[in-house]
Design a binder for these strands. Structure first.
Length: 343
DNA sequence: TACACGTGGGA
DNA sequence: TTCCCAAGTGT
């Protein structure tokens, strides 16, 4: 078993000597720490940095964000993915503004009730800001702890996470913020999924998996996701003014993001014109084909140039000039299509 | 409990 | 190319 005192001391000593610079580590503002934790969900540090800097510049205070419109806020998340994060964060911050006098709750039980704040974000923010004794168990910690304790339980099971949280409780009674971040930092830089650098690991002597020579067998993950594939026709429709037809999505996927009109591949021209309520001239051959891969599905897209005489479209459709494209939020797949069509 | 929910990087 | 995975949460 791990010798508790030495393990934590060794880990923290390494952390203080090696911790990477990140913009959110230069502040104690709970709103900024919270924002960083939301942005970091399923997203790597280097990806987050520029988004974080732009976001706090645009919305420096809870009041600024509370007064902003969703459309504007979404623009600062464009390309970052998992867009429900920013909608939930916006809603939660407005709740703090209205119901908590603009002060982020210091009680974990209250903070956890806010939209988008789950067990991880609650523990991370509350430990970093107030050293509340809560273990922040993310993907890094699940991997690191399964190796340190040589635990072959499936880390995707809720039961396993609960067990880990209980086992970690003794280590978060003091300095929980630093301990939680040190565990994650270790997972991100040393105890990596592939080719972990055990040679330079600060807690190698405490690692059960290392002693047993089974580091590469851990962690155990049983489930694998199967992906759906959907084929689409994407129409890049222009008018005589050189404007492009776009529409705002209402689906849950990429909710409220803008896109070029797209239809499932087996849909007829007739039903497409019916949906658009317009006569559309579509080029006979696609301009190009492209693939967009999500975590849970793949879009195969045939992109066609098309033209129409119709002037005005009703919501969710609208014409935009090429300059106006920068004012609306598009998913990455749509931005790539826009670039290719304007080269 | 299982699945939906984005995107980019590394091997 | 293909697969995995990254500071998870909502339903």
């Amino acid at each position: 078993m791990i010798e508790s005192i030495n393990f934590k001391e060794d880990l923290l000593h390494w952390y203080y000597e090696n911790k990477r610079q990140m913009p959110w580590r230069e502040t104690t503002n709970p709103y900024y720490i919270w924002l960083s934790e939301v942005m970091l969900q399923q997203t790597q540090v280097n990806t987050v940095k520029p988004y974080y800097n732009a976001f706090i510049k645009a919305f420096p205070t809870i009041e600024d964000l509370s007064n902003a419109k969703e459309e504007e806020v979404l623009k600062y998340w464009e390309g970052l993915g998992y867009y429900s994060r920013v909608r939930n964060f916006h809603e939660a911050v407005k709740e703090v503004h209205e119901s908590y006098n603009g002060v982020v709750p210091t009680d974990p039980t209250e903070f956890k009730h806010l939209k988008g704040v789950g067990p991880y974000t609650n523990a991370a923010v509350m430990s970093i800001v107030h050293n509340h004794p809560l273990p922040a168990v993310d993907g890094n910690v699940l991997r690191v702890w399964s190796r340190l304790t040589s635990n072959y339980a499936d880390i995707q099971l809720q039961k396993t996470k609960k067990t880990f949280e209980e086992e970690l409780m003794p280590y978060v009674q003091t300095n929980s913020g630093d301990f939680n971040q040190a565990m994650m930092e270790l997972g991100a830089t040393v105890c990596t999924p592939k080719n972990p650098i055990c040679l330079f690991c600060p807690v190698q002597t405490h690692c059960e998996a290392f002693h047993q020579g089974v580091v590469t067998e851990l962690p155990v993950k049983k489930k694998k996701i199967k992906k759906k594939t959907v084929n689409y026709v994407v129409l890049y429709i222009t008018n005589k003014n050189g404007e492009v037809l776009v529409r705002k999505r209402s689906a849950k996927l990429l909710h409220n993001m803008w896109e070029f009109p797209m239809f499932e591949h087996d849909e007829s021209i007739h039903s497409i014109e019916e949906e658009l309520d317009a006569v559309i001239d579509i080029e006979s051959e696609p301009e190009f084909t492209t693939k967009h891969v999500f975590t849970h599905m793949t879009w195969n897209m045939e992109v066609y140039r098309a033209y129409t005489q119709k002037n005005s479209f009703k919501a969710p459709y609208r014409w935009i000039s090429k300059q106006q494209k920068d004012q609306l939020s598009f998913s990455t797949s749509m931005s790539k299509i826009f670039s290719k069509m304007n080269r």
